[in-house]
Design a protein around this nucleic acid. Structure first.
Lengths: 237, 237
DNA sequence: AAGTGGTCTAGACCACTGT
DNA sequence: CAGTGGTCTAGACCACTTT
């Protein structure tokens, strides 16, 4: 683990603690250099990372300041999988409704960038929070990359299994979100009425090397879910 | 404008052109150093920026590759204001429904971090794309920061006015998104029926120095809008 | 003017990928 | 092993904010 990540972790813990609140000023770069005994660029790397992760904001000529929003219970959409982090403290559950190996249809082929001959795992899950159903998820995993899944994995955390056991390295993600009306099947699964509103989120997950391995379609219960998206300085380009 | 931004711009134009497609490999860092006649760290800064903006993905020991998603017509939620960029090529309109100076209520006070005595501009707009109504927006601007607004500005681009004329420097943003049912007033504005689904997006815009200046609540037409959110490598922390 | 952050260089060395 | 990206340093100089 490189120095700048170790330092960043440490500072993130500090910022997350109750010691610090929105607008609090961090130590200056020079002080941080001395304290951690590293060069300036390393501190800059740390601060860039913290800024990008939404922990701080940087003000030229003035200092670095803690950034904290005040709302709780929102799903950070960029962590919509592995939402353990944003929804920590809530009791989450996953009920497996279906699990099988299939050949992809056109939609799945296009989104996972595979041919009709390649196998995919199809997983259908009902997700709950504090015992309340909040989402129906249909996911497709490229079998060449995810060679094995079972009920136990699927009802625990698939992403933890992929990362820790299969040692897959997730790279980037594309999310597409629409709003629509529930059909009968999905309404029944969520204990809602046909025609009720829903957030429909499609996500494509790519490995570090750019290969897509997971295409997920999730329908959220409109009364149980709210999303949070953090924007960082886009600077003038 | 620093070197790394100039180079980044140039490379972004190149990547956006039809010359390059998803997965194409960029020149190596050493080649880029020679070509642009700059040091390694400067190129690294460029690549970090491009990666963060979703233009490329980086693969250690292998190279940098073009990232392009294939869907069009989606609003990049991180550019939900100033969506000219994501929806370029579409004809956008803004009809002013209301514009006045008011005292903030509790909700506005909390989100803009102001007292009950400070004035805010209240702006209500109906936004359209290609002549079709797609969103109702209610925004609150801190008058101390935005001292003047009129119909012309409001029907053009408020953000362009803030940045170019008032020289405000936007910093970061918090977005909160929920799904719900339209009430009668908003349904009528969007030519929909009461109870139809809608995406409800609340956004707080902060200046570079961390001060909030704009609190916006937008209701989107569920048939006319879809959102795109790009996730970049979160690395292990 | 002093304090603080931002950009940039040159060079060293490490870590990973691909052949 | 060669190619390529990632981390890190020390130091110079610039730009902005604050007092």
């Amino acid at each position: 683990m490189p120095k700048y990540k170790i330092i960043a972790r440490q500072m993130m813990r500090k910022i997350n603690s109750d010691d610090m609140k929105q607008g609090d000023k961090l130590a200056s770069i020079e002080e941080l250099m001395k304290y951690f005994d590293v060069g300036k660029n390393t501190i800059i790397q740390v601060l860039t990372l913290l800024e990008r992760q939404g922990y701080i904001y940087q003000v030229r000529g003035s200092g670095n300041f803690v950034r904290k929003h005040r709302r709780h219970g929102y799903i950070n959409i960029l962590e919509a999988n592995g939402f353990q982090s944003t929804l920590q403290g809530f009791r989450l559950g996953s009920e497996m409704l279906d699990l099988k190996i299939i050949k992809p249809n056109t939609e799945v082929m296009a989104n996972l960038d595979i041919t009709a001959e390649e196998d995919v795992y199809y997983v259908k899950r009902l997700r709950s929070i504090e015992g309340r159903k909040f989402a129906v998820e249909r996911s497709y995993y490229v079998k060449d990359i995810v060679p094995y899944l079972n009920q136990e994995i699927v009802e625990e955390s698939i992403f933890r299994y992929l990362m820790e056991d299969l040692k897959l390295k997730p790279g980037f993600t594309d999310h597409f979100l629409r709003v629509g009306k529930l059909n009968q099947e999905n309404a029944e699964l969520l204990n809602l009425n046909t025609g009720d509103p829903t957030a429909f989120l499609e996500s494509i997950y790519y490995l570090e090397n750019g290969q897509p391995f997971d295409y997920s379609k999730v329908l959220y219960h409109y009364e149980e879910t709210q999303f949070f998206i953090q924007g960082t300085n886009n600077m003038e380009l």
